[in-house]
Design a protein around this nucleic acid. Structure first.
Length: 423
RNA sequence: GGUGAGGUGGCUGAGUGGUCGAAAGCACAUCUUUGCUAAAGAUGCGUAGCCUUAACAGCUACCGAGGGUUCGAAUCCCUCCCUCACCGCCA
């Protein structure tokens, strides 16, 4: 959520930054400004009337004590109350409208975020390793997975539907080994605290991180309980501190969490979504940071490095790209994507998206910290996958496949997996 | 799911219709004094909005949430939520 005062006082700057995003928000800003003016004038009027009422009511109490007849002034207060109610309706309506508009406005891209219109303009930041070469035709993970009895897409479709999968045998074990490997790495080497959160959350959590109200059609919802299946651990983990005032000594807060993620993927079904690459449910280890504003950009770099370490240890070739203003997510001010090479696909797969949200999410969830000077401030929130499992699984089995159809387990994963190959 | 108790400021905890945004204590901050591994005293110390501003100040709202009664609600009424205890059920 943007600060209404920033919009009021630096309208041009706000419009100019938003203009770099895809989508047109100038008219929303204009409506916001006129609603804000109306809201404040109604609010001022209401508060003045409430002040009148409070004063006169006190007088009534005193007059009654003195045994005086108070019925004329009581009638006067009733008249004031009618006007308070009337003007209050305007003030409340404007307030609700203003909040709705603010929630529908995306974050301002940071000045460090490269300007561009679409994914084609995302600059490549760095590349690690090389594309592996094979003296045979590398197979797709769906072939490998089914041949080795690791992946059963038919069973997934049978019990739930398309874009759900059943991991079996070595596949299930590999998935579990990867989760443990990731959590162990981030908690013992990178200083994150492991948390294990509910997979169902209240609507306000999704508002807090930005999925609601705008992207409600992308999340699974249980109407009886008004609970939502989490699309990412970012939601429960970042909201752990919603409505709180943190102490400055608590910062930075660093959490790592494994959860399954549930996504409806409305409108994108069947589009280049072979195998594990785009599922309605997938596992992910998420990294979340809450930091002081001054250090958030540096923390984004370290968070991204923490995610990259995963791929380095597993020996997987990857590249890091920076999302341009036309491609960054709704709430993000700056984002790096990490894309791992999948030889069977002949393409890079996004396995991590590391973003600095600035104070955008903190404002939405009213998360603050008390600064050195005793003033309450909004901290910055960051998160990134560390990493998404399904696609990491794809890259791993496709990269380490052998001519005989077996799969080597990279050194770093062997103690977690308990074997050095799958055959 | 049942029964009972309860939800007040960072914490403890008063407060059952009128000058209560809320006593007192603790914690915290600044200052003073005595002096030294501490003590005493003074002052300050919630959140948000509005209006102003160089700053201060002022006003309004908030005592779990939402409604209601009233000229006036932390206080009375209704609904809901949550916490704790015991019982039931259960992985």
């Amino acid at each position: 959520m943007l600060d209404i005062r920033l919009i009021r006082e630096n309208t041009d700057l706000v419009k100019q930054r938003l203009a770099h995003r895809s989508g047109d928000y100038a008219s929303v800003v204009d409506e916001l400004l006129s609603i804000d003016t109306a809201r404040r004038s109604a609010e001022t009027e209401r508060q003045k009337l409430q002040g009148d009422r409070n004063r006169i009511s006190k007088d009534i109490g005193i007059a009654k004590k003195n045994g005086q007849d108070t019925s004329p002034i009581e009638a006067e207060v009733r008249g004031i109350n009618d006007r308070i109610e009337e003007i209050g309706r305007d003030a409340d309506a404007a307030d609700i409208r203003q909040r709705d508009l603010l929630l529908s406005l995306p974050n301002l891209p940071h000045e460090a975020c490269p300007v561009g219109h679409s994914a084609e303009e995302n600059p490549e930041v760095r590349v690690w390793g090389d594309k592996p070469s094979y003296d045979f035709e590398p197979k797709d993970h769906t072939i490998l997975g089914q041949t080795l009895g690791m992946l059963d897409f038919e069973a997934g479709a049978k019990i739930t539907g398309s874009a759900f999968v059943v991991y079996r045998g070595a596949g299930a074990r590999l998935e579990r080994a990867l989760i443990n490997f990731l959590l162990d790495l981030h908690t013992t080497q990178h200083g994150y605290l492991e948390v294990n959160t509910p997979h169902l959350v209240k609507a306000e959590c999704l508002v807090g991180t930005g999925q609601l109200p705008k992207f409600g059609d992308q999340v699974y919802h249980s109407p009886e309980d008004d609970l939502y299946l989490i699309p990412t651990a970012e939601v429960p983990v970042t909201n752990l501190h919603r409505e709180e005032i943190l102490k400055v000594e608590q910062l930075p807060i660093q959490y790592a969490a494994y959860t399954p993620c549930f996504r409806r993927e409305a409108g994108s079904a069947g589009l280049g979504t072979r195998g594990l690459i785009r599922m309605h449910q997938f596992d992910k280890v998420e990294l979340v940071k809450i930091t002081a504003p001054e250090v958030s950009m540096a923390e984004l770099e370290s968070l991204t490095a923490n995610a990259e370490k995963v791929l380095q240890l597993l020996g997987l070739h990857y590249r890091v790209i920076e999302l341009c203003t036309g491609d960054i997510g709704f709430g993000s001010a700056k984002t790096y994507d990490i894309e791992v090479w999948a030889p069977g696909q002949g393409t890079y797969l996004e396995v991590s998206s590391c973003s600095n949200f600035g104070d955008y999410q903190a404002r939405r969830m009213n998360l603050r910290y008390k600064g050195e000077d005793g003033k309450n401030r909004f901290p910055h929130t960051l998160n990134g996958s560390g990493t998404a499992l399904a696609r990491l699984f794809v890259a791993l089995v496709e990269t380490y496949q052998q001519a005989d159809g077996s799969i080597l387990i990279p050194e770093a994963l062997r103690s977690h997996f308990g074997a050095d190959k799958i055959s």
